[in-house]
């Protein structure tokens, strides 16, 4: 990434380079169920005055969590609400907001709208597009074809361990993507 080989770097250093990930599992990976949103903010964000001389600034963390809640329309009791008290969509919005506020250069979002209601999904899509417009690269991993066609610029398919050449999402025929999914990269091009 940006000329640095990141494959073997530890997560903290990758983050410093502007690399952010939203994992597909929410509770237990992207967030700790028993912890408050303020504490969950600390999971990937130790800057912004949240950690000073090795000590956690509780009030700063709560303020930062409140900012995420407000900017991304998260429905929650507040910064002290436990992560598992939120609905899937709202927790997803929170996690997305947490990563977006870091202004990453590259965001990998894995199934960001999986099990999320339509309204929240639309908000998440909007947020991702805004990020793209602001100049960030986004790698969206999804199995939802409608989602991919709706918000991606280019689509590539992994089939049998091989990555297809990316095709423009605009005007891409479903049949062509279908052909790519079966692994017939060359034939797929002919069929289109």
């Amino acid at each position: 990434m940006a000329g640095v080989v990141v494959g073997r770097l530890p997560p903290a250093q990758r983050r410093k380079l502007g690399f952010a990930v939203i994992p597909e599992e929410r509770l237990g990976r992207g967030a700790v169920a028993e912890m408050s949103l303020a504490e969950n903010t600390l999971l990937t964000e130790a800057g912004h005055g949240l950690v000073v001389r090795g000590l956690v600034r509780g009030r700063a963390a709560a303020g930062y969590a409140a900012e995420i809640i407000e900017r991304f329309d998260v429905v929650a009791r507040g910064a002290d609400a436990e992560a598992d008290s939120l609905s899937g969509g709202n927790l997803q919005k929170f996690m997305l907001g947490r990563e977006i506020l870091k202004k990453p250069k590259l965001l990998v979002a894995a199934h960001p709208t999986w099990g999320v209601d339509v309204g929240a999904a639309a908000q998440i899509h909007r947020a991702l597009i805004e990020m793209r417009d602001a100049g960030a690269a986004i790698l969206l991993i999804s199995e939802d074809l409608d989602e991919l066609l709706a918000i991606s610029d280019r689509i590539a398919v992994i089939s049998r361990g091989r990555l297809s050449p990316p095709i423009a999402a605009e005007g891409a025929a479903r049949e062509r993507i279908g052909a790519l999914m079966t692994g017939s990269f060359a034939e797929g091009a002919h069929a289109a």
Binding site: P10, P11, A12, R14, R15, V21, P23, E25, L27, G28, R29, G30, A31, V32, A33, E34, M35, E39, L42, L43, T44, A46, V51, G54, L55, V56, G58
Partner: peptide, 26 residues
Amino acid sequence: LLLDKSYLGFQIRVTGLAPGAAAYAG
């Protein structure tokens, strides 16, 4: 102070409650 207020204490707690989240956070 170490257990409840420090960043190390926070990392320890996350590791105990959700090892997956600790790995994600790095």
